[in-house]
Computed example of a mutant assay.
Amino acid sequence: MKGFFKNVSPVRAIRDLRQQFIRPQEYRWRFIALSAAMTGSIFLVFVGQNYSAMPKPLKVIYFPSFLPGRSDAQIEKGNVAAMKARAAADAEKAADAKVVRDRYKAMGDFFGMDTEKFIKEGDRERAAKRAAQEKRDEAILKQTLKSDGTAPATGN
C-alpha cells in the first residue's frame, strides 16, 4: 500500500489535467460538455428526491387525566377523539410505509430483481406480526376482564 501512495501526487495530477486541457483535440469541448451534462443530470435526479433515511419522529398523544367531576359523556367524548387521532396517525404511518415499499419495488424492478417474492414475504411477516399482537391483546383482555365480560371494580 505504501508503494501506491508513493506514486500519487496532487500536484502531478493537477499538472496532468492542465496538460490534457492545453493539448488541442478535435472533440475536447464536446466531451467536456457531455460529461458535465451527465454529471449534472445525476445530481439533478438525487436533488429532486425528497425523503430522508431517518423515520419521522413519533407524535405522542397524551390522554387527559380523569379529573374529578368529569361526566361519563365527557370521558367517552375524550376517548373517541383520542381513538380518531390514533387511527389517523396509524393511517399516516401505513401510507408512509407504502410509499417506502413502492420505492423499494421500483428500485428492485429497475435492477431486475424478483420483487413479487419479496412483497409476498413482507406481507406474510406483517400478517404474522399483526396476528401475534392480536393474540397478546386478547390474552391481556381475558386477564383483565371478569368471566362475565365486565371490567373489575377499581375501588375508587
Score class of each variant (00 low, 15 high):
125 E>N: 05
27 Y>M: 01
105 K>D: 11
133 Q>Y: 08
80 V>W: 08
76 E>F: 12
49 Q>R: 07
44 L>R: 00
10 P>V: 01
20 Q>A: 14
20 Q>H: 09
2 K>T: 07
150 T>C: 00
81 A>H: 02
84 K>V: 09
79 N>S: 11
37 A>N: 08
101 R>I: 04
23 R>A: 07
98 K>I: 04
60 V>D: 15
73 A>D: 13
154 T>S: 05
17 L>I: 14
121 E>Q: 10
65 S>D: 14
130 R>I: 03
99 V>I: 10
123 D>E: 12
149 G>S: 00
64 P>N: 15
141 L>E: 08
32 I>R: 00
85 A>T: 13
74 Q>M: 13
90 D>V: 08
77 K>A: 14
77 K>H: 13
51 Y>M: 12
79 N>E: 12
83 M>V: 05
81 A>F: 03
142 K>V: 01
106 A>W: 10
35 S>W: 02
15 R>D: 15
130 R>K: 12
4 F>A: 09
8 V>M: 06
42 I>C: 06
108 G>N: 13
114 D>H: 04
106 A>D: 12
36 A>D: 04
116 E>F: 01
124 R>M: 12
132 A>G: 01
33 A>W: 01
11 V>N: 08
61 I>M: 15
116 E>I: 00
96 D>F: 03
35 S>V: 02
16 D>P: 08
140 I>F: 09
137 D>S: 03
44 L>A: 11
114 D>E: 06
156 N>C: 06
42 I>Y: 08
14 I>M: 13
75 I>Q: 12
34 L>D: 10
78 G>P: 06
70 R>P: 01
92 E>A: 14
59 K>E: 15
113 M>Q: 12
143 Q>K: 10
21 F>L: 13
80 V>D: 15
76 E>S: 13
70 R>W: 11
23 R>H: 09
2 K>W: 07
44 L>T: 04
97 A>W: 01
117 K>H: 07
74 Q>C: 05
132 A>S: 07
147 S>H: 06
51 Y>P: 00
115 T>K: 03
111 F>Q: 07
32 I>N: 02
15 R>Q: 15
104 Y>N: 11
151 A>Q: 05
16 D>N: 14
58 L>K: 15
132 A>E: 09
32 I>Q: 03
118 F>D: 04
133 Q>S: 09
25 Q>W: 01
144 T>A: 08
16 D>Y: 13
121 E>P: 04
138 E>I: 00
139 A>I: 01
126 R>V: 09
85 A>C: 04
123 D>W: 05
153 A>D: 11
65 S>G: 14
145 L>P: 01
67 L>S: 15
87 A>M: 05
81 A>V: 03
152 P>I: 00
26 E>Q: 07
54 M>H: 10
70 R>T: 12
121 E>C: 05
64 P>L: 03
11 V>F: 11
81 A>G: 03
138 E>K: 10
76 E>W: 10
155 G>H: 01
11 V>P: 11
20 Q>R: 13
151 A>W: 07
121 E>V: 07
55 P>K: 02
12 R>W: 06
123 D>H: 08
83 M>A: 12
138 E>F: 02
